[in-house]
C-alpha cells in the first residue's frame, strides 16, 4: 500500500505541471466573466425574487463549469499513455513495470484526483469573490460525465496513434462540434446536456452513457499501452 502511494506521488510529479494550474486559473477567470455578464440581470431579479436570481447564477455556473472543466481533465490526463514515449523512457518503464497497464492507470487516477480536487475550488472561488450566493452541487456534478468521456476518447486515440496531440485534437474536435452544433456529431453522447440541454435527451441516460463510454475508452487505452511497442 505504501509503495502504491509512493508510486502515485511520483506519477503526480510527472503528470501535473504548470499547464494544468494555468488552465484552472483561466477557467476560474472565464467563470467570473460569465457570471458578471448576467450580474446586472441577477441584481435586478434579486430585488424582486431572490430564488430566481440564484437560479440564474446557478444556470450560468453549471453551463460554464460543464463547458470548461472537462478541458481541465483533458489537460491533466492526456499524457498518461504517452508520457514514457515522449521522454524516451518507454522501454525502461515497460521492462520495470510488473503490470504494465498499471502505469497509465495510476496516471489517470492521479490526474482525476487533481481534477476532482480542482473542480470545487475553481467553481466556488469566483462566486465567493463576487459575493454571489449559489449552490455548488449541480455545478460540481455537471462536468464529471463529459470529462470522463473526453478523457477516455483522448487517451484511446493517443494510445492508438502514439501521440497525445492527436488524442487532444480528437477530444477537442468533439468538444468544439458540440459547442457549435449541439449533439449533431455526438447524438446521445452530447456533452453539455446539464447546462445547455437538448429537448429530446434524458439527462440521466446521457450522463450514464458518457461515463460508460469514457470507462470503456480508458480501458481500451490501458490495453493499447500494454500492447503497443
Amino acid at each position: 500500500m505504501r509503495r502504491q502511494l509512493a508510486l502515485l506521488g511520483r506519477e503526480a510529479r510527472l503528470m501535473l505541471g504548470w499547464g494544468f494550474l494555468c488552465f484552472l486559473v483561466v477557467a476560474g477567470f472565464a467563470l467570473a466573466v460569465g457570471l458578471s455578464s448576467v450580474e446586472h440581470e441577477r441584481r435586478t431579479l434579486a430585488a424582486v425574487d431572490p430564488g430566481m436570481a440564484r437560479a440564474l447564477a446557478e444556470r450560468v455556473g453549471v453551463r460554464m463549469g460543464e463547458l470548461l472543466m472537462p478541458l481541465a481533465a483533458l489537460v491533466a490526463s492526456t499524457h498518461a499513455v504517452v508520457l514514457d514515449r515522449e521522454n524516451g523512457v518507454g522501454e525502461v518503464v515497460r521492462t520495470a513495470a510488473r503490470w504494465r497497464p498499471g502505469v497509465p492507470l495510476r496516471r489517470v487516477l492521479v490526474a482525476w484526483a487533481a481534477f476532482l480536487a480542482a473542480i470545487p475550488v475553481v467553481l466556488a472561488v469566483p462566486p465567493l469573490l463576487m459575493g454571489i450566493d449559489l449552490g455548488l452541487g449541480r455545478m460540481i456534478l455537471a462536468p464529471l460525465a463529459p470529462a470522463a468521456f473526453l478523457t477516455g476518447l483522448a487517451l484511446a486515440v493517443s494510445a492508438w496513434l502514439g501521440s497525445y496531440v492527436t488524442g487532444l485534437a480528437a477530444a477537442g474536435m468533439v468538444w468544439v462540434s458540440d459547442l457549435m452544433r449541439p449533439g449533431v456529431l455526438t447524438g446521445p453522447l452530447y456533452l453539455f446536456q446539464a447546462g445547455q440541454p437538448l429537448a429530446d435527451l434524458n439527462l440521466q441516460a446521457n450522463r450514464l452513457l458518457l461515463v460508460g463510454a469514457g470507462a470503456v475508452l480508458i480501458a481500451l487505452a490501458l490495453g493499447l499501452y500494454d500492447r503497443r511497442a
Binding site: 505504501r2 509503495r3 509512493a6 508510486l7 511520483r10 510529479r13 525502461v92 518503464v93 520495470a96 513495470a97 510488473r98 502505469v103
Partner: peptide
C-alpha cells in the same frame, strides 16, 4: 527520484 520511481515499478519495498 528516477531510480526511486524505477525501484517502485520493480516492486522494491522502502
Amino acid at each position: 527520484e528516477f531510480l526511486d520511481y524505477v525501484g517502485l515499478l520493480k516492486g522494491l519495498d522502502g
